[in-house]
Design a protein around this nucleic acid. Structure first.
Lengths: 142, 142
DNA sequence: GTTGCTGCAAAGTGTTTGCACCCTG
DNA sequence: CAGGGTGCAAACACTTTGCAGCAAC
């Protein structure tokens, strides 16, 4: 493993006087190998599959690091647990969540973004981030 | 108090063999008097201001009833607690959340909705609900 | 050898549930 | 007076934190 992402993480770590450890590499690796939109628990299972002694707390702590270093971002679909998605080299998009099978389709519609800016401007509001989630049924479940 | 909402709640209650109690009326009243987007804790404080003995559990249980009866809907801005908004006679809208002062501006843009449908259709996805939250700074905080 | 990192368990947060008593219909 | 409703406290699910030992630099 010698990905671009590992470099980003190592840069962030060294720039902040932190340390590169086996656990951090493991969590990053599992995160990169994972589906988009993993939960902490899922990631924990993935990590412990190859590194049984890693604790759940370390997964959470490393996820925080990934978020700070810009490699991951936090999602909340309102189901009681946070999810994490790849952010590096992965541009902004929104989500369609199938409430039947859990499948998540990502999409981006430039005009929707444009009209968002427009509404915001009309209200004197400056957008720093947004999220659009659509819930429903995917083609397989209909 | 003899609002339309009370009627809706009483209809729902009687149609389901449930009972109208002083606590339920209190929670509904506090909910109707509250700001949009109350959290359970906030609502609990409002209720106990006039009815000190009401428990937090009752607030949660009554909120569930309000949701089932169509008077309230649940929101999640990803800050770790759920919020509840008035739904009766209050049509669909999205939110701009000021991350500085917490102010919430509601808006609705028909074209955004239209393009959402369009993207969904293009992916064979049937939308049952959606939410669009924009985070940033309101005019007062800029 | 410092200083930060880890695993573990304990503490926290927001929400839900079990239970004995209470009250509505 | 029967059955649901309530307050209280305990249980929950997810996440964070304190601490003593451990490992990276």
């Amino acid at each position: 493993m010698s990905s671009k992402e590992l470099e980003v993480l190592e840069d962030f770590i060294t720039q902040n006087n932190l340390k590169i450890t086996r656990q951090r590499r493991s969590v990053l690796k599992a995160f990169l190998d994972s589906e988009e939109h993993v939960s902490a628990e899922e990631l924990y299972k993935l990590v412990t599959a190859s590194e049984p002694k890693v604790g759940l707390a370390t997964v959470y702590r490393t996820l925080a690091l990934l978020i700070q270093s810009g490699l991951a971002s936090e999602l909340d679909f309102g189901d009681g647990q946070k999810r994490y998605e790849h952010k590096y080299m992965h541009s902004h998009h929104d989500h369609m969540i199938c409430t039947e099978c859990g499948k998540i389709i990502e999409f981006n519609h430039p005009l929707i973004e444009k009209f968002q800016e427009e509404v915001a401007a009309r209200n004197g509001f400056t957008i720093t981030s947004h999220k659009l989630d659509m819930f429903g049924m995917c083609s397989d479940c209909r």
